[in-house]
């Protein structure tokens, strides 16, 4: 596959219909994580799958649309975090393309990378909009402890975010990888826009 097709903005219909499915999967992940009272969000499984299947651009679009929809139907602040979702989509797309998503250990490593990217992108947003907090009880407790001890807000906020992101993003990537492995070949192929028609 050529690099160009990976980054193509000329979307195939199959990749486009992957986006609503991805957003729906994000929503359902979040729903079950809540219903089972898991200490994780698990709300980006769909975005990750979209990136793995159709590349960074579709992944990024899935992330953005996910947050826009969530922002317009539940919590408007999530609009702001569309940026984080886009970053996750792009990162996973690149990792998958570079072959960093094709075994369990590699997927675990990718999970850590994604957590870092997510935290790096979210931290300035958290600082700008929330004074540095994430809204997660444990993370915010650590944040309070750190700023009470005169650590810079940037550090405190980053630690707050990464504490939440590390377990969440690793779990998200591992779940997505498990699902990806179960998908039939003829499905994974249709999202790739690049194959030529051979003449018989």
């Amino acid at each position: 596959m050529t690099k160009k097709s990976r980054w193509s903005f000329n979307f195939s219909t199959a990749s486009l219909v992957l986006i609503p499915a991805a957003v729906g999967i994000n929503y359902i992940g979040k729903f079950f994580a809540g219903a089972l009272k898991l200490p994780l969000w698990l709300d980006s499984i769909g975005t990750v799958l979209a990136s793995m299947l159709a590349g960074p651009v579709i992944g990024a679009l899935s992330g953005a649309i996910n947050n826009i929809i969530y922002g317009l139907t539940a919590d408007p602040i999530s609009l702001v975090y569309a940026i984080t979702s886009v970053a996750i989509g792009i990162t996973v797309g690149i990792l998958a393309y570079k072959g960093w998503m094709d075994s369990w250990p590699k997927a675990l490593f990718s999970g850590i990378i994604v957590a870092l990217v997510s935290a790096v992108v979210s931290t300035p947003l958290n600082i700008k909009f929330w004074g540095g907090q994430t809204g997660n009880f444990w993370g915010d407790s650590v944040f309070a402890f750190l700023i009470a001890n005169k650590y810079p807000v940037l550090i405190a906020s980053f630690v707050d975010e990464i504490l939440v992101d590390i377990p969440d993003k690793i779990a998200t990537i591992l779940v997505s990888y498990a699902i990806f492995r179960g998908l039939p070949n003829k499905l994974t192929l249709v999202y790739k826009n690049e194959s030529e028609i051979e003449k018989l």
Binding site: V190, S195, I197, E198, K199, L200
Partner: peptide, 11 residues
């Protein structure tokens, strides 16, 4: 087939 599915086509 082939415009959406790609693959190899003749006739």
């Amino acid at each position: 087939a082939p415009n959406f599915l790609k693959g190899a086509y003749g006739g």
